[in-house]
Amino acid sequence: MEAEDQQALTGAVIKEHRLDLAQLWLEFVGLGGDASEQLIREYCAGEATLSPKERDALAQAVNEHCVAEGLPLRAPFSGSALFLLRPERHDPERKDPYSSK
């Protein structure tokens, strides 16, 4: 998954569930993340970038919170596939699973 896609989707999950960024940051640090709380806020606002390791630690923190609260949406990891949502980036000969053809 491209960094920009992961950032947008993670931010959307946080916004949709109205997750507390201060709490997420504490969970992120507990999972080995070392970015500042301010950098996490800027990342979620689309104003900063994080390394794949940091993005995945934040996604894990978001997902653990969502599981604990029974929330349906999850943040993607850097290795997550996005091809079903954006099939134009893949082999045009591959059959679209959503196509009726």
Rank of each mutant, 00 (worst) to 15 (best):
A61S: 14
P52L: 07
H65V: 08
T49E: 15
S51D: 12
L58A: 08
L39T: 15
Y43S: 06
E16N: 09
A12Y: 01
L84V: 04
D34Y: 06
Y43Q: 05
L50D: 01
A57T: 03
E42P: 00
G11K: 02
L58V: 08
E27Q: 13
A81W: 02
S99A: 14
C66Q: 11
L24N: 12
L84T: 03
A8G: 01
L26N: 11
G33K: 12
K101Q: 11
A61G: 09
K101M: 01
Y98M: 04
Q23R: 14
F28A: 11
L82N: 09
S100G: 06
W25C: 04
Q6E: 10
A22S: 13
L58C: 10
L31W: 07
Q7Y: 00
A68H: 02
L71G: 08
L73E: 08
D91Q: 02
P76A: 01
E16R: 14
C66K: 08
D91M: 01
Q38F: 11
R41H: 12
I14N: 06
H90G: 07
I14L: 11
L26T: 05
A59R: 04
A81C: 13
L31P: 03
K101G: 15
L71F: 00
L85P: 00
L50T: 03
E42Q: 15
R74M: 13
K95E: 12
E2S: 14
R89E: 11
N63T: 04
A12D: 11
E16Q: 13
G11T: 01
R74V: 03
R74Q: 12
E69L: 14
L9K: 11
S80H: 11
E64G: 15
P87F: 09
L21I: 15
A8R: 14
C44H: 03
S80E: 08
A12E: 12
D91W: 04
L85W: 13
R89M: 05
F77V: 00
A3V: 10
S51P: 02
P87Q: 03
D96P: 06
G33V: 09
L24V: 05
G79H: 13
E54H: 15
A12T: 00
G32D: 08
L50V: 06
